[in-house]
């Protein structure tokens, strides 16, 4: 028997991607996890084990900030799940209606904010909502609802929800596009068969289309989850690194940034910053695992 030849071409073809990915993703990830186990004491880096995590979770000062950021992050995510994704599905369902005119126009108009930079979106909305120059107060005034206006971004109780809504406005195009694509793959025959059985209109959506696009909704949920728990840009551009007012818009991303790089007179602490980054990684990992093993494997798929 001849010895098996090593198939070099596999190695050669994989190498560029593996090398680049390792250098820019895998190595920094593990190095961050490693950095979280050290601390700088008197100009020297010392291995401290899980001490940083103990500080993060149990020191009253750190724990308060961490749980506040985590809670805000969950609220940010919940708003997206309750507002962005249902609206996305609804828009996709309307757009896929065969008799809708200008569908392509609407589709692009709704999708365009997604390709805008966070900085542009952040500043544009900050101006729109500005109590001094913004158009939001004058527009509300025109319909006689001026009393409903509040400086939303400056109030502890509204700021985070307002920013979540701005983010929803920006990203609603993504679920819309994914669901739209999923809806287009549903064969006409199935819908026609349903029609013969008397299932039309809304019933057809609920009973035929929705079950068929459930896997796509699952994917969108997990994308939203990962995106939201990694979010940082929008909060940073509108509220700054201190995520005001009074940390009410502080999410894990801004908390990590402030700690890692420092802010104003506060010097950066890469080790505590890495500990927060590791905690974020763990949270996202757990969330994704719950989805993969708890939900996706049980989801029923239909042959189309």
């Amino acid at each position: 028997m001849q010895p098996r030849r090593i198939r070099w071409h596999i190695v050669v073809f994989l190498a560029p991607a593996v090398l680049v990915y390792t250098a820019v993703m895998i190595f920094p990830l593990f190095n961050t996890l490693r950095l979280a186990l050290y601390s700088r004491i008197d100009q020297e880096r010392i291995f401290v084990g899980l001490e940083n995590f103990r500080t993060l979770f149990f020191d009253p000062f750190w724990a308060e900030q961490f749980w506040n950021a985590l809670g805000n992050n969950f609220w940010f995510f919940i708003v997206h799940m309750l507002v962005q994704n249902p609206i996305g599905v609804a828009l996709a369902a309307i757009l896929s209606h065969p008799r809708l005119r200008f569908a392509a126009l609407y589709r692009s108009a709704i999708f365009i904010p997604t390709i805008l930079s966070f900085v542009i979106v952040g500043f544009a909305w900050k101006l729109i909502l500005s109590p001094i120059w913004g158009i939001a107060p004058s527009m509300l005034d025109m319909v006689g609802l001026k009393s409903l206006f509040a400086p939303w971004l400056g109030k502890e109780e509204y700021a985070l929800t307002t920013l979540a809504m701005v983010s929803v406005w920006q990203f609603v195009g993504i679920p819309m596009m994914l669901i739209y694509a999923a809806l287009l793959t549903i064969p006409e025959e199935i819908l026609e068969a349903g029609e013969i059985d008397g299932i039309t209109g809304f019933a057809a959506f609920w009973k035929i289309k929705l079950p068929l696009i459930l896997p796509s909704i699952g994917i969108i949920s997990i994308l939203t989850f990962v995106g939201n728990f990694n979010a940082f840009d929008l909060i940073y551009t509108t509220q700054g690194a201190l995520a005001g007012p009074d940390f009410s818009t502080d999410i894990l991303g801004t908390f990590m940034y402030r700690t890692f790089f420092g802010f104003q007179l506060q010097l950066g602490d890469p080790h505590m910053g890495s500990a927060i980054a590791s905690a974020m990684f763990a949270i996202i990992l757990v969330g994704v695992c719950i989805y993969l093993f708890g939900i996706q494997t049980r989801m029923r798929r239909y042959q189309m």
């Binding site: 900050k126 909502l129 500005s130 109590p131 001094i132 120059w133 107060p137 206006f149 509040a150 400086p151 939303w152 971004l153 400056g154 109030k155 007012p245």
Partner: peptide, 11 residues
């Protein structure tokens, strides 16, 4: 001013 809570430094 009104809405000073959301008023920025450049404002």
């Amino acid at each position: 001013g009104d809405g000073y809570e959301a008023q920025t430094y450049p404002d």
